[in-house]
Amino acid sequence: MKILAFDTSTQQCSVALLCGNEIKDISLDAPNQHAELLLPLIHRLLHEAGLSLTQLNAIGFSRGPGSFTGLRIAASLAQGLACAHDIPVAAISTLQMMAQATHLTQHAERIAVAMDARMQQIYWGTFAGTGIMLPTCPEQVLSPNEVILAGKDWTAVGTAWQVYSDSLLFLQPQLAHIDTKSLPQARNLIPLAQYQIEQKLTVSAENALPIYLRDKVC
């Protein structure tokens, strides 16, 4: 299977390529440079693997939540790369990518992801599973004190657990572990894109669109 994946939802610019069983990836800390970096990085990975776009089974991108401009850069790139060759697109949740990463490295099976959404709000999603982390509730943008979490032994992931640690303190008894450092990485998109291919959940280029969660912007 061959999948190209990229994430520009945070200040990181991250690109990954699955070719056979091997994932090659590059992640750079690059605030405001995503548009400049993406195509050269993609070109490099494809070139090193001796692949052309038309050989890809799918293109995966993180559809949000995250930086609005970053999400649109990834979505318009996915649209432009996929449309002419009808390459299927896997639009992947940023929160799910982070849950998947934690699942792979820490074998956690219940993961609560909270990313700082600014304006005293967080992007919130909970995931569970073995192998593939699937959502257990709809993702939402809300105030930290509006969070509702049922059950115990959750692994907490995302920057918001640190930024809003005071407001989220009430959830402490339900948490087994907290990881506030991790950011979305394109390589974690790949197993989720594979899952979408298997489940026939990929979309056409037209539907490679961001999901902002925050829809009230003025």
């Binding site: 548009a35 993406l38 195509l39 993609i42 070109h43 776009l53 609005f68 401009t69 649109r72 850069i73 318009s76 790139l77 996915a78 649209q79 432009g80 790369l81 996929a82 449309c83 002419a84 060759h85």
Partner: peptide, 19 residues
């Protein structure tokens, strides 16, 4: 508008790359 320009520019560049 920077954000608006980016949508067209990224789409156009990606399309050019793919074709």
């Amino acid at each position: 508008l920077a954000g608006a320009l980016l949508v067209g520019a990224v789409f156009a560049r990606a399309l050019g790359f793919s074709l």
